[in-house]
Nucleic acid binder design. Sequence first.
DNA 1: GACTATAGGTGTACGTCGTACACTTGTCAA
DNA 2: TTGACAAGTGTACGACGTACACCTATAGTC
Lengths: 188, 188
Amino acid sequence: MRRLAQALGVVPMALYKHVDNKDELLDGMVDIVFGEIESPSIDADWRSAMRRRAISAREALKRHSWAIGLMETRHPGPANLRNHNAVMGCLRESGFSFETAIHAYSVLDAYIYGFAQQEKTLGFQTPGDAGEAVQRRAQAIAPLDDYPYLAEIATKLPASGYDNAVEFAWGLDLILDALDRRRRTARR
Amino acid sequence: MRRLAQALGVVPMALYKHVDNKDELLDGMVDIVFGEIESPSIDADWRSAMRRRAISAREALKRHSWAIGLMETRHPGPANLRNHNAVMGCLRESGFSFETAIHAYSVLDAYIYGFAQQEKTLGFQTPGDAGEAVQRRAQAIAPLDDYPYLAEIATKLPASGYDNAVEFAWGLDLILDALDRRRRTARR
DNA sequence: GACTATAGGTGTACGTCGTACACTTGTCAA
DNA sequence: TTGACAAGTGTACGACGTACACCTATAGTC
């Protein structure tokens, strides 16, 4: 709060004329981020709609990585509700049973937030960084010789063309494929 | 730190004879939680090994829900490295290519942590709580009529026998099935 | 044109937190 | 007996969020 006030060229207490407290401010900030996540339209093809939403969610979380631990923690705002409602709507109208829709919802969101969390933590963007990061971290603790499979990561990852966006899409498509299969079998 | 010191019947500064600072203390605490996660043995059947690890990870995170935002954020300790090394080892020895093992790793961990996060946030255990929670949250913002698909959740979830452990297992098995398929096709 | 409600900003102060620094004390090896 | 060292203490500082009382400029209303 003090830092924000300073950035606005204003005394800290001035903020409290606009928000009740820090929590409420964070709620608002988080809901703005939710607003940047694409909402699927109800009659869209569920698979590509979910894919676009997931990718735009990752991008939003990447833009605002401060939000990552918060998205799930804050009181849901309008953008949050709208988005979640749209997701459920799209799934239900695409032939998902209620139960399967809930499951799908849960897997997708867990994956999205979990991935964003990892991405933020690991904090590397390029494949070079990645190998280096593994190496640095492991060797701070013990010689890498004790962990042969981590050593493999440290040596091979830099050359593998690792890319977070690609990595995310790989897992996302894996999940979407699997959901499609479940949806079809559940239908019969 | 002050609270911990008090619980130990000691003055706050006494703690600093044992840890350098709060961060280091958290690192240690988190690594203890990692120690409670089952490490797959290298020659185990990868699918059931991954399943057991994931389930024990969720249970550990449920036991120590304070750790949830931290597991991925702290400097990795020995238990962390050991566990991750074991996971990679098990996957590699089960016929996963290096790239596919990295992918599998990434999806699984993202799912595990993302799910734990959700579970912590939603903060309900029983199906009854769940529906109630949805209702309470949504109506704090706007009448549920504006969000028909959320309304469906609020009405149907309580009767659906929702259970977090079951929910987790559903998504986990979905992912494991899909990984198995990818592993087999990548092998050819 | 005088009067007042109100939105927005200010200043001071409190309690909480992590922790730096200097000090004491109890234990055990040489 | 000594002296090193592990463990605990006391005081103090700066950061933080925020309660409370105060000020000021603008915008209606009569």
